[in-house]
């Protein structure tokens, strides 16, 4: 009986080994996202998980809560738990490089989604929204909406994220050419709706006569709009966001927000999962950085869009 038990155990171990070396269902994909406290990132993570499942892989979502230390723990856990690829939305363009390098050294491929890390070689591929180009177009629209003059406020996202500055720089590359458009305040609200509302309330105390607000994402645009409503100024002030989140799309339909820029998280997430699948099948030649187009959404073309994308 003892011999039989040992034989069964050996067989079980061997079959376990062959399964972890063999078919694609033995591969696991970790999805590490900067925060799940923003519906856009929830959509990104869930879409990536759904696509991974469709492709036959087990996956798990890790929430970094905008904390690089927690993100580092997630990477260590993912590597130790035998995940074979990480679909990654970083918290910090510079600070997250070491995590990606750690995974690379462990033989785990990393595919960045939406946000980049400051390295050409650390990640296998980086699929990024072309935020700068979109904000050039938003900047042109902002200039036109304010008729080339007025006072405005800019709410920035997380200051260690490249998207924050790509959006800000794209916008300013246009708006700064118009000397009668004056930025009276520029503050970070960390891409967070509640923070944006608080920051906007305090800015409005000092600058009650603003004409426009440019926000680095839709959550902040909604928070700023709420503050403007509370101050009785929502009708007069043009507010622009970025993302194409559900409440921003509804808000443009209702004539509240002036514009947003539609990113395509479904495209980004599905492409990242597909790249992981191709990587497992032996492909090694991926674009190092792949910019994904972003489209400006206003009341004029809102009918073509739904939350997080275009109508089918």
């Amino acid at each position: 009986m003892k011999r039989l038990t040992i034989a069964v155990l050996i067989l079980a171990i061997l079959s376990g080994c062959s399964s972890s070396n063999g078919g694609k269902d033995s591969k696991k994909i970790a999805i590490v996202v900067s925060t799940l406290n923003n519906p856009w990132f929830v959509f990104l993570a869930e879409t990536a998980a759904k696509k991974a499942k469709e492709l036959g892989y087990e996956s798990k979502i890790f929430d970094s809560q905008n904390n690089t230390a927690l993100e580092s723990d997630h990477f260590e856990n993912a590597i130790a738990s035998g995940y074979n690829a990480i679909l990654f939305n970083p918290t910090d363009a510079a600070g997250s490089v070491s995590n990606v390098m750690k995974a690379k050294e462990a033989g785990v491929a990393v595919f960045c989604m939406d946000r980049e890390v400051n390295s050409k070689d650390a990640a296998t591929s980086q699929i990024l929204s072309d935020s700068y180009s979109a904000c050039i177009e938003l900047g042109k629209l902002f200039v036109q909406s304010l008729n080339k003059k007025g006072k405005y406020v800019e709410l920035l996202g997380i200051v260690s994220d490249n998207n924050t500055w790509n959006r800000s720089k794209g916008f300013h590359s246009v708006v700064d050419n118009y000397p009668d458009l004056k930025m009276v305040a520029q503050q970070s609200a960390d891409f967070d709706r509640n923070k944006a509302m608080e920051v906007m309330e305090s800015i409005l105390q000092a600058h009650p006569d603003i004409d426009g607000v440019f926000c680095g994402n839709d959550a902040m645009a909604m928070g700023a709009y709420q503050a403007l409503v509370a101050a009785g100024k929502a009708e007069k002030v043009k507010v622009m966001g970025f993302d194409g989140a559900e409440d921003a799309i509804n808000s443009i339909k209702e004539g509240k927000l002036t514009a947003t820029a539609m990113q395509f998280p479904k495209t980004i997430a599905e492409l990242a999962a597909t790249y992981a699948d191709e990587y497992f099948k032996g492909k090694t030649d991926f674009p190092k950085k792949l910019p994904i187009p972003v489209e400006v959404v206003t009341s004029e073309n809102i009918d073509k869009y739904i939350a997080y994308g275009k109508k089918e």
Binding site: A93, E116, S119, L128, N166
Partner: peptide, 15 residues
């Protein structure tokens, strides 16, 4: 874009 370490670098070239 592949010439640059970050997209910020490429965008600064535009400016």
């Amino acid at each position: 874009v592949d010439e640059f370490t970050t997209t910020m670098e490429m965008n600064t070239v535009s400016e």
